[in-house]
């Protein structure tokens, strides 16, 4: 019993290693199946696709980190995108429109945050309701029709296609947001507060942390990030589409949970790896002209496998240790 053998590498490293091997083998498989996969152009394509998923998933990471779930972000993001498109059609400057879209995200996030953090309503159902209201509001701007007006002339599509040092702007936005989020989550006191609330709300409360506030902030960040992500989609497509955010739910949850499985906590780097992995698989399938719905299947399969994998490891770990039981008084 006492001879607990420590392997040459720790559990975390082993998980990471497995993930990297998996990642590389998927890359290899795709490049063998399709010569265009490794082309610069496709790589940039993948990166653009990654940035959409990764930014929204980054926001979700905050909510999962505080121990909650948000099922509204992909619907509130539709509202933000439509608000932006509507303002663009009114002829406002694109930066102002983007700011308005983000503000819309903030408001919806604050709504969800207050309902869940302050009034303690169950997170899943209330966010479904709030998301649905936001989605309904998104129809307000054009009654559900696409908004094309002014899109090309306002400069927002140019903004999307612009490059800095050869890197597309959305990718730069993603990089900046991830850098900021990494610093906040891993290096700042705010990150500590998010994680401590997620790990143990009561203990965080007894350590003087304003639990309610932290939860509200997490929901606000989540909604704002989702807004950014869907506005990028709109700019890329050159129109405002009510349903442009609806495809985000699955890949975002799978990105966060793949990262969760690899790093044993919802983390910025983990989510990024998960998002890259998810987007790459979706792209690889598209390149091979496999229909989109199969990639859906693969993504959900991936989500299940990632969690299964972490569960198996956990159970083998538990089996090695003596049974943990609550101490008696």
């Amino acid at each position: 019993m006492n001879k607990e053998k420590k392997g040459p590498i720790s559990n975390e490293l082993f998980t990471l290693l497995v993930f990297v091997i998996l990642f590389l083998s998927v890359l290899a498989a795709f490049s063998m199946l399709n010569r265009n996969f490794f082309s610069v152009r496709n790589m940039l394509n993948i990166l653009k696709h990654v940035s959409v998923i990764a930014i929204a998933a980054l926001g979700l990471t905050f909510v999962i980190a505080v121990g909650h779930a948000d099922i509204s972000f992909y619907m509130t993001s539709c509202f933000s995108a439509m608000l932006m498109s509507w303002l663009i059609a009114r002829g406002l400057s694109p930066l102002l429109c983007i700011a308005a879209g983000i503000a819309g995200g903030l408001v919806w996030g604050a709504f969800s945050g207050f309902v869940v953090g302050r009034y303690k309503l169950p997170d899943k159902i209330s966010t479904i309701a709030i998301g649905s209201i936001a989605f309904g509001m998104a129809y307000l701007f054009s009654d559900g029709a696409f908004i094309y007006t002014n899109f090309t002339s306002s400069g927002i599509t140019d903004l999307n296609n612009a490059r800095l040092f050869g890197i597309p702007v959305p990718v730069l936005i993603m990089a900046a947001l991830y850098l900021a989020a990494y610093v906040v989550m891993e290096r700042s006191k705010y990150g500590r507060q998010f994680y401590s609330v997620g790990y143990n709300k009561k203990a965080a409360f007894f350590s003087g942390i304003g639990v309610d506030r932290v939860i509200v902030v997490a929901f606000v960040v989540c909604s704002a990030m989702a807004a950014v992500s869907t506005m990028i989609t709109s700019a890329a497509q050159g129109n405002g589409n009510v349903k442009s955010g609806l495809t985000l739910l699955m890949p975002c949850f799978s990105a966060v949970y793949i990262g969760f499985a690899v790093f044993k906590k919802p983390s910025v780097i983990g989510t990024f790896l998960g998002a890259v992995f998810t987007a790459m698989i979706q792209n690889g399938f598209t390149l091979m002209s496999v229909p989109f719905y199969y990639s859906d299947m693969v993504v959900s399969g991936l989500l299940i496998l990632a969690i299964l994998f972490s569960r198996f490891e956990l159970s083998s770990q538990l089996a090695r240790r003596p049974k943990q039981q609550k101490e008696g008084r």
Partner: peptide, 16 residues
């Protein structure tokens, strides 16, 4: 339940 954050390292618990 109330005192420690078991999943966090000692140092973070001390300073939180």
């Amino acid at each position: 339940a109330e005192g420690q954050i078991g999943d966090m390292p000692i140092t973070m618990n001390l300073t939180i």
